[in-house]
Design a protein around this nucleic acid. Structure first.
Length: 351
DNA sequence: CTAGCTGA
DNA sequence: TCAGCTAGG
């Protein structure tokens, strides 16, 4: 979900990545949950069935994570995955709503299946997806075997990813959501996939999607605001911590209001109708100062071929041929971009 | 979503 | 060689 800042971002604040080599050897932090949900939603048969092993355990997320990560490494990107921790208390309402929405979608899916409306059912099944804890464990085990680092956030993954970028432990945060900007990530990369084909929701139409970089400072300068004000604007529009925002206020109005009054507390004096499920200043302070795990260790290791085969082929029935082929690509990318990137020779070239 | 195949 | 299609688990 996240904050819908899309309409607030001026076109000239987005830098299109035309050549992925621009990102070579850069450390990019990925919101793991965000990615796993995408895989679970997308990697399905037309009737909505996900990929599963012989014990009926879902494997779509593993397929997506495996091949996507290899593509990134092959293109020189050094991925680090950030996993959500326990959700903050102020997210309770949003989480409750998602639960209800998913339960409804589940019921609608069952009904549609009964009526033989397979495609409609598939649509609802996707809306009802839940990321179960075994899936998260599988994903972490696979990353471990691949030699890819991951970071466990104490609370919000987007906040943790922003922390990494702020500390210089990563170059950018990759996510479809804009929340990491509110958490202070200096750089956000959206649409970071290798094959640029993406199906538009609804229609059977494919469009070219290129990755885009949004720099926080550039954005703030263009809008003529501070990060605190960007957060205030987001709170007026609606965030995960106040999903409805303020009635009647969209991105354009929110920007105007905050620029006019300077801050949320001043603006609220003129918005007596504004209602919040949480103290809005508490929401702001969460974005400004979220709990993060400061004890992070980001290292890449040689891919462990046997472990990968154990997980994917032995436990989850992936095809040996495909997996072995992919491991070769991973090893090549690792040797070319990751293993070498900390050698003295490489550091010398960077001068 | 991505890999791998197919037919021009 | 490459866009288009479909199987993958």
């Amino acid at each position: 979900m996240g904050v819908n800042l899309k309409d607030l971002i001026p076109p000239n604040c987005k830098t299109e990545v035309s050549d992925l080599r621009q990102l070579a050897r850069k450390i990019v932090a990925f919101d793991a949950y965000n990615a796993l949900y995408q895989f679970l939603a997308a990697i399905r048969q037309p009737d909505g069935t996900p990929l599963m092993d012989s014990k009926s355990r879902v494997t779509s997320h593993l397929s997506g994570l495996f091949y996507r990560t290899i593509n990134l490494v092959e293109n020189g990107i050094k991925p680090v995955y950030v996993f959500d921790g326990k959700p903050p208390e102020i997210k309770r309402i949003e989480l409750e709503r998602r639960k209800v929405r998913k339960e409804k979608a589940q019921k609608l899916a069952e009904k549609a299946y009964e009526e033989g409306a397979i495609e409609e059912a598939a649509k609802y099944v996707v809306q009802a997806i839940n990321l179960e804890s075994p899936m998260v464990k599988d994903a972490k085990d696979l990353l471990e075997a691949m030699g890819m680092p991951y970071v466990q956030a104490s609370e919000e993954g987007e906040a943790q990813a922003a922390y990494l970028a702020k500390k210089g432990l990563s170059w950018a945060t990759a996510s479809q959501d804009y929340d990491s900007l509110l958490f202070g990530s200096p750089r956000l990369v959206r649409n970071l996939t290798i094959t640029g084909r993406r199906k538009l929701p609804g229609r059977e139409v494919y469009v070219e999607i290129k990755p885009e970089i949004i720099e926080l400072n550039t954005l703030l300068k263009a809008l003529g605001i501070t990060r605190e004000q960007l957060i205030d604007i987001a709170i007026l529009i609606g965030t995960d911590y106040n999903p409805d925002g303020v009635e009647g206020i969209g991105p354009k109005t929110a920007l105007q209001i905050i620029k006019m009054h300077g801050s949320l507390e001043k603006a609220l004096k003129f918005l007596p109708q504004a209602k919040f499920p949480e103290d809005p200043l508490k929401i702001r302070s969460y974005f400004l100062n979220p709990p993060v795990n400061e004890n992070v260790d980001i290292e890449w290791r040689e891919p462990d071929k046997n472990k990968i085969i154990q997980i994917l082929v032995k436990e989850h029935d992936f095809s040996m041929d495909r997996v072995e082929n992919a491991i070769k690509r991973l090893e090549k990318g690792y040797r070319e971009f990751i293993k070498s990137s900390t050698t003295s020779l490489d550091l010398w070239f960077k001068k």
